[in-house]
Amino acid sequence: MHFKTPSRLAAACLVALCGAFTSAQAHNVWLLPSTTVLSKAEWITVDAAVSNDLFFFNHFPLGLENLTVTAPDGSAVAPENAHKGKLRSVFDLNLTQTGTYRLAVLNNGLFATYKDKAGQPRRWRGTAEKFAAEVPADAQDLKVTQSAGRIETYVTVGKPSAVKSSGKGLELVPVTHPNDLVKGDKATFAFHIDGKPAAGLEVVLVAGATRYRDKQDEIKATTDAKGEFSVTWPQAGMYWVDADAKDDKVSLPQAKERRLSYVGTLEVLP
């Protein structure tokens, strides 16, 4: 089962930066916590994968090299028992503070195509720091694209706390708290790019368990002038949220385009 082309493109950029390969553009990336709402301090386990079907690990593990876990007080939480298997990555978190935790895999990098001195086409992926050393200064037909992607989810212990945005890249900015979602209720969120509202952005939401139905049943929305969109949840369960954008706000002079992507996992309760 495939999602819309922009989603596949976003997945390709993210997965490439996480170390996967082959037909990444036909798959989807996600973080899946064992639960998103806890009444008291407890441990949780989180799965991370690239898959054909939502929330089923049937293709490739998601790399955790760029994983960050932010506690309610803004401090960093170290994941424990991290493991990368054949089909998924997994890690545990000891959540001791009251409030909302933000779990995110952040990927930033460059993709370049060019011709070498012999006229042979070449491709390169890497960081801005390695660009000058690994891409020839005399490369012909050089085309460089910068990518910035965020894969995230939220978990709350006890009373929810405010989720602070970083002001960098494409971010989901909650109006309705992401751990206060209930079937039949209306929820509102916003998307920002570098801290400013992203108007006219197409957002796709898909309930999990796509393996067991014939249709994706996508929910589509478009952000308004304030970057906001709303959704009324048709059923309980885990939802995959996707948005993609591009602009010319690059940090490397050789790059002409920046591709931004966001993938989130939200839990809707009965």
Rank of each mutant, 00 (worst) to 15 (best):
S166M: 01
K143Y: 09
G237I: 07
G208E: 06
T188S: 14
A207Q: 12
F191W: 05
V163Y: 03
F131A: 03
E171Q: 10
E228D: 02
H177S: 01
T145C: 11
T127A: 13
A162E: 11
A236L: 07
V204A: 14
K164G: 00
D138P: 05
E171D: 06
V206L: 13
A236H: 12
H177A: 03
A133T: 09
G200R: 04
G208C: 07
R150H: 01
L205P: 03
R213W: 04
V135I: 03
F131M: 04
A133L: 10
M238A: 12
P160A: 06
E202V: 13
G169W: 04
A245W: 13
K143Q: 10
S166R: 09
T223A: 03
Y212H: 14
A198P: 08
V155Y: 03
Q146F: 01
A236Y: 08
T127S: 15
P178L: 07
G195C: 08
K215P: 00
K159R: 12
S161T: 15
T222R: 04
E228W: 02
E202Q: 15
M238I: 07
I193L: 14
A162Y: 00
R211F: 12
T210C: 01
I151Q: 05
I193G: 02
A139I: 05
K168I: 15
G208K: 02
E202H: 14
A207T: 01
R150D: 01
K164Q: 11
A209W: 12
E129G: 05
K130N: 15
K220A: 11
E152Q: 07
A137C: 07
E171A: 06
V204E: 15
T232R: 13
L205F: 12
A221E: 11
A243K: 06
S166A: 11
K143S: 11
A236Q: 14
N179R: 09
V182T: 15
K226W: 01
A132R: 13
Y212C: 09
T156V: 01
G200N: 08
F131W: 02
V231C: 02
A139K: 08
R150L: 08
V157L: 05
K220F: 12
I151T: 12
I151G: 00
E152N: 10
T156K: 00
K164A: 11
P197H: 12
L181P: 02
V206S: 09
T222Q: 05
T222G: 06
Y154R: 01
L170V: 09
R211C: 01
K215I: 02
V175S: 07
D242E: 13
V173S: 07
T223C: 07
G237S: 10
R213C: 06
T223R: 05
A187F: 00
E202P: 15
L170Q: 07
R213F: 04
D224S: 04
G227V: 08
V155A: 05
D185L: 06
G200T: 02
D141F: 10
D242L: 13
A190I: 09
V206M: 10
D244M: 15
V144C: 03
F229D: 12
P136W: 06
P174H: 03
I151F: 00
I219N: 08
S166C: 02
G200E: 04
A162S: 10
A162V: 09
E202Y: 11
A162F: 01
E152W: 00
A133N: 10
G195S: 10
V155F: 09
T223F: 08
L201S: 08
D180E: 15
D138F: 09
F189I: 07
M238V: 08
T176H: 03
T153Y: 02
K226T: 11
